[in-house]
């Protein structure tokens, strides 16, 4: 279980290059470092649900990513807040 305030990195993984898949981790966040805001609950893994496989519940977190990120337009102090499943997060 991750704690609020913990620094995490989104796994720099690209399952879509290995075959058919369904993932809820946006491209623009892979490999990025953010901060856990809170645990939103546990939800059946959409990566399994999409293929009608048994889908164990996975912890879902709101993770904050401070702007600016990749792009020049972002303003310091602003942030993106994104739902990320625990199995996509690693310690940073």
């Amino acid at each position: 279980m991750l704690e609020a305030g913990q620094r995490v990195r989104v796994r720099d993984d690209w399952p879509e290059t290995r075959g058919p898949c369904h993932i809820r981790t946006p491209h623009y966040l892979r490999g990025e470092i953010g901060t856990v805001e809170r645990h939103l609950g546990d939800f059946p893994n959409p990566e399994d649900l999409a293929f009608a496989r048994p889908a164990p519940a996975k912890a879902l977190y709101h993770v904050r990513f401070d702007l600016p990120m990749h792009w020049p337009e972002g303003r310091a102090g602003d942030a993106l807040v994104v739902e990320i499943f625990e199995h996509w997060l690693e310690a940073a």
Binding site: R24, T25, P26, L40, G41, F43, P46, L60, R64, R75, G77, D78, A79, L80, V81, V82, E83, I84, F85
Partner: peptide
Amino acid sequence: VKLRVVDSTADY
């Protein structure tokens, strides 16, 4: 005012 963009990617 700080802006927070919430990207609705999963179950909420």
